[in-house]
């Protein structure tokens, strides 16, 4: 297991060594701040809880985009630069390789997400919100990050081009996002399937409202696990070709 941490530390240092890590971080904080100021704070008098809900709503969008941007390089870049051979010939399993890449991106994005905490704290200047609501909202953001990163990671394992990986990852994310629209036009039982597959509408809104359901956590954990396993399968298949 210590080899997983060796790769995690290497990947984290790559984010910090690479301007892209800083650019993505700065962009997320800037956009979150602008959206918070424009729509959550600056849209007239509101209940503090509504402001917090709006914050988590906008943050979920930037988090998904940041997750995609951070994860599409994870394998595509290794293949592009020819360094994938170092991981394939190292004494680690494909699962450890995928898991360590995922954990590194999750820690980076998690840290970035937690840096936005000054925004909900600003609500305390003129209002009052529950710490529990804030904590649940952040747990929701981290769960959404986890699922989005695993999707981006899987897309990254498919191609040596980060552009192609980005397009594939975005397509999967969008399909999962719009499942709730399909649910509205489909007949049962398909409507129920689409509704439950929806990445955001059914499963993230409760977190925004400060409600945490086990089913939502299980959903995000399942999506994460599914795409991590698919990534492992892709790596294993590449050893044959």
């Amino acid at each position: 297991m210590h080899r997983v941490w060796i790769i995690v530390l290497h990947e984290l240092s790559t984010y910090l060594r690479n301007p892209m890590g800083y650019i993505i971080g700065a962009a997320v904080l800037l956009i979150d701040g602008l959206l918070f100021n424009a729509f959550a704070l600056g849209a007239g008098a509101r209940l503090s809880t509504e402001v917090l809900q709006q914050f988590f709503y906008f943050s979920s969008g930037t988090t998904m985009i940041a997750a995609l941007l951070l994860s599409i390089r994870l394998f595509a870049e290794e293949r592009q630069t020819g360094t994938m051979v170092l991981l394939r010939t190292a004494p680690i399993s494909d699962w450890e390789t995928v898991f360590s890449k995922f954990i590194s991106a999750f820690l980076f994005l998690g840290g970035l997400t937690l840096l936005t905490i000054y925004m909900p704290l600003l609500i305390f200047v003129h209002g009052k919100v529950s710490i529990g609501h804030m904590a649940v909202g952040y747990i929701g953001l981290l769960a959404l990050s986890s699922a989005s990163l695993s999707i981006g990671l899987f897309a990254s394992s498919l191609s040596r081009s980060q552009v192609v990986s980005g397009v594939v990852g975005a397509a999967i994310l969008v399909v999962l996002l719009v499942c709730w629209l399909l649910a509205a036009v489909a007949d049962p039982p398909l409507a129920g399937v689409f509704e439950n597959l929806s990445l955001h509408n059914l499963h993230f809104r409760p977190f925004m409202e400060g409600v945490m359901h086990t089913r939502d956590l299980v959903y995000y954990a399942s999506i994460t696990y599914l795409f991590l396993i698919l990534s492992v399968r892709v790596l294993a298949a590449r050893r044959w070709s």
């Binding site: 080899r3 290497h10 060594r17 020819g82 170092l86 190292a90 004494p91």
Partner: peptide
């Protein structure tokens, strides 16, 4: 193993690169 094109991380220093791979290989 040295493939035909050396697998290197462009932004890593020589010492850091070798240390990382040494650690990764046990």
């Amino acid at each position: 193993f040295l493939p035909e094109n050396p697998p290197i991380y462009p932004a890593m220093k020589v010492s850091e690169y070798l240390y990382y791979l040494g650690r990764l290989r046990g």
